[in-house]
Simulated assay, not measured.
Amino acid sequence: MTTHVPPGTSPTAVDDLRAREALRAHEFAGAGHLLRLWRPPLAPGQWRTFGLFSADRLETELASMPLCV
């Protein structure tokens, strides 16, 4: 998943979204649905995540992530 932050987005809004995304990922991991998460280093303003999931209803689970719009 690659996330593009629109120009003009406040750093506070980005931090809030990242915190909510991290909380949901932690919940997935606790339930055994998120097996591994990688966040490679990128240039400023770039945000990329690779995840290994195991879920019966993966599309439903991923739709509950804050970044899913």
Rank of each mutant, 00 (worst) to 15 (best):
T60C: 02
G45D: 05
A13G: 00
A29V: 02
M65F: 02
A19W: 08
A63I: 05
C68D: 07
Q46V: 07
T2M: 03
L35T: 13
D16I: 13
H4P: 00
D15L: 14
T60I: 09
R39P: 00
H4A: 08
V5F: 14
R39Y: 03
L34Q: 01
P11N: 06
M65L: 07
A31L: 15
A22L: 14
E21H: 15
M65T: 08
P7S: 13
L23D: 13
G30S: 13
Q46L: 15
T12G: 08
A22G: 08
P11L: 03
L35E: 10
W38P: 00
T2P: 06
E61V: 12
T9M: 03
Q46A: 12
R24F: 05
F28E: 03
C68Q: 13
S54C: 08
A19L: 13
A25Y: 04
C68H: 14
P44V: 09
F50C: 06
G8N: 07
G32R: 08
S54V: 07
T9L: 04
L67V: 14
L34N: 03
H4K: 09
A19Y: 06
T12K: 15
P66F: 04
L23G: 11
H26P: 06
E21W: 04
P44R: 09
G32T: 05
T2G: 03
M1V: 05
S64F: 02
F50G: 01
G30K: 14
T60P: 00
T60Q: 05
P41R: 15
G45L: 10
L52E: 10
P11M: 03
W38V: 12
R18C: 04
Q46S: 10
D56L: 03
T3D: 05
